[in-house]
């Protein structure tokens, strides 16, 4: 179960790389909520969950220890090399987000890959990432607003990372693109027998 075949390794790192590229396109989303976040920064937490998706998808698809963390780190490193304005903060974010999702799968000893586990992963990632951002970026934000931000982070982690990531994995399984991986195999067995 823990042995990484070449395909497992590649799927993990390529999920990270693909999101590294897709994230450039997501920048557009921030312009949508721009007016809101200019007046009320904590609202940016509403989109936070999107950034944890590489970890969630790699965890749910590859189902091996370390996959979630590695995919998120690759996405972070790619952002950094492309010139992300948060510099090394991005790497720590990758560690927090990937680590949070990883932790949820670790708690089930990599046996359960269900919607509740995915939501838990999103929530843990949100919690850790919020902690890091509070420390590094929002030291001077008052605790009332920081608390509001945490609420937005947790909501976003649960929905945009947990629920959306789980749904995206199911959609990918349906396309047949992951037939040779753990997530697809479960589906194949059900369909082929």
């Amino acid at each position: 179960m823990t042995r990484y075949r070449t395909v497992d390794l590649l799927v993990t790192v390529l999920i990270g790389a693909a999101f590294g590229v897709a994230f450039l396109g997501y920048g557009q989303l921030y312009t949508l909520i721009g007016p809101l976040t200019a007046a009320f920064k904590p609202a940016e937490g509403l989109l936070a969950g999107l950034w944890f998706l590489p970890a969630m998808l790699a965890g749910l698809i590859v189902r091996k220890p370390g996959a979630a963390l590695l995919a998120e780190l690759i996405a972070a490193v790619m952002s950094m090399l492309l010139g992300s304005q948060w510099g090394w903060g991005t790497a720590v974010s990758g560690l927090m987000q990937g680590g949070g999702v990883e932790l949820a799968f670790l708690l089930t000893r990599y046996r359960r890959f269900t919607l509740p586990v995915a939501v838990l992963g999103g929530v843990l990632a949100a919690l850790l990432e919020w902690g890091w951002e509070k420390l590094a970026y929002y030291q001077e934000m008052s605790w009332a607003f920081s608390g509001t931000m945490l609420a937005f982070f947790l909501l976003s982690g649960a929905l945009l990372c947990g629920v959306l990531g789980w749904a995206a994995t199911r959609a990918l399984v349906a396309t047949g693109a992951v037939d040779s991986l753990a997530a697809g195999r479960e589906h194949s067995r059900a369909a082929a027998v």
């Binding site: 999920i15 999101f19 897709a22 557009q28 959609a171 040779s180």
Partner: peptide, 19 residues
């Protein structure tokens, strides 16, 4: 963007197998 991400992942994952 959601659909495009999924399409990029399908492309990438199929490619990963070949790669």
């Amino acid at each position: 963007l959601a659909g495009a991400t999924l399409a990029l992942l399908v492309d990438t994952l199929r490619g990963a197998e070949q790669q």
